[in-house]
Design a protein around this nucleic acid. Structure first.
Lengths: 195, 195
DNA sequence: ATAAAAAGATTGATTAATCAATCACTTTTT
DNA sequence: AAAAAGTGATTGATTAATCAATCTTTTTAT
């Protein structure tokens, strides 16, 4: 049993090392040797866990998505008015992003080059579609009861998605930087939330 | 005289070929051979115009900034209320971006990896600072006369910058796609502009 | 319980492919 | 005919992936 546990930990260590390196340097400029060194394993070991550099990259981008999905689910399931739920969503997203910047940078790095990483980008697009499918009904509900200004809900969802994408790519400061507060404030404003 | 003209045109052709290739594939995965082929020149010719691949990349990112500066200047100099000027700015930016997507993708690609391209990123940061220095006074003026909701003007400028960054990276559709209208609408909303 | 043996994991030197940059030669312009 | 620009084959450096040797864990046999 010890072996299986060790291998899971080692795999996680490699991924953990790979994510910031890929986020900082992109796919090609990140070498497997550097990842191995950073993870504290031998060069060859990496290929016991991932069949290729591409495979490792894919895992580094896609596996953190699961955590995202759970956050999204919580928001959809949450109680409260659309106003409250959307506000919570914005806060939740931006706090999560500020604490997982490299994962997010990596995701949006791939979204910025979809033709280069078609398979991975397709998974991210699918996630984005799920995201819209979850947000649109909340917006619509808010528009019905007058909490949210009238507009195309899908257009608003796209705009919000672009906004959080841009924040992640632009914002390199640590989670305690006051700019994050500002980004939350204006993220809410997109939905017409001004308090 | 003919020679000088030809050389300028050839240089421009190389840059024109390089921009979308770098935007699609990033720095490392774009080969000089591909750029040369796309530009219709020989491999060696590229190095008559640019001392290295890095040099070509830098030119591809930075030279289009001049056009950006002119747009910015027009907005600052323009007559009208802050409301009118900011609305024009958003429209102007997003229309420009939709028509120069690859240039913009390339700029934001570099901003996403500032430690990898420190020199180029510094020039882009300098541009961003100029941008903020131009936008903040307009926002302040609008807040003074009540057209723009009260908030930290620099925080708002950052949020807008992140927004347009995100739109460029997210939005791959052609300029006539109706989503661009939506992005303009919600860009205006960030500034509290709702008409 | 202990030891031998089998299975599985770790490793980095080697290999083969890729690509930036050079440079000797050719073509075009002055 | 001199100068300048264009060119692509060659070169050297880099790096992903392999693999044979080594080490570690698990299983089996006594």
């Amino acid at each position: 049993m010890k072996r299986e546990q060790n291998m899971l930990e080692k795999r996680a260590k490699i991924l953990e090392a790979a994510i910031p390196l890929f986020a900082d340097n992109g796919f090609s400029a990140t070498t497997v040797a550097t990842i191995a060194k950073q993870a504290g394993v031998g060069f060859g070991t990496v290929f016991n866990y991932f069949v290729s550099k591409e495979d490792l990259f894919k895992a580094a981008v896609i596996e953190p998505l699961d955590e995202q999905r759970e956050i999204l689910k919580k928001i959809v399931m949450a109680q409260g008015t659309p106003h409250e739920r959307l506000k919570k969503m914005v806060i939740c997203h931006l706090q999560h992003f500020s604490n997982h910047r490299n994962q997010m940078r990596l995701m949006f790095y791939v979204l910025g080059q979809p033709e280069r990483f078609p398979e991975i980008a397709e998974e991210l697009f699918a996630f984005a579609r799920d995201f819209f499918a979850a947000v649109v009904p909340i917006v619509e509900e808010g528009q019905t009861n007058g909490e949210i200004p009238a507009c195309d809900p899908l257009g608003l969802s796209w705009s919000y998605f672009a906004y959080i994408n841009g924040v992640v790519m632009t914002m390199l400061d640590p989670p305690d930087d006051p700019k994050w507060e500002q980004f939350i404030l204006h993220g809410c404003r997109l939905f017409g939330i001004t308090d």
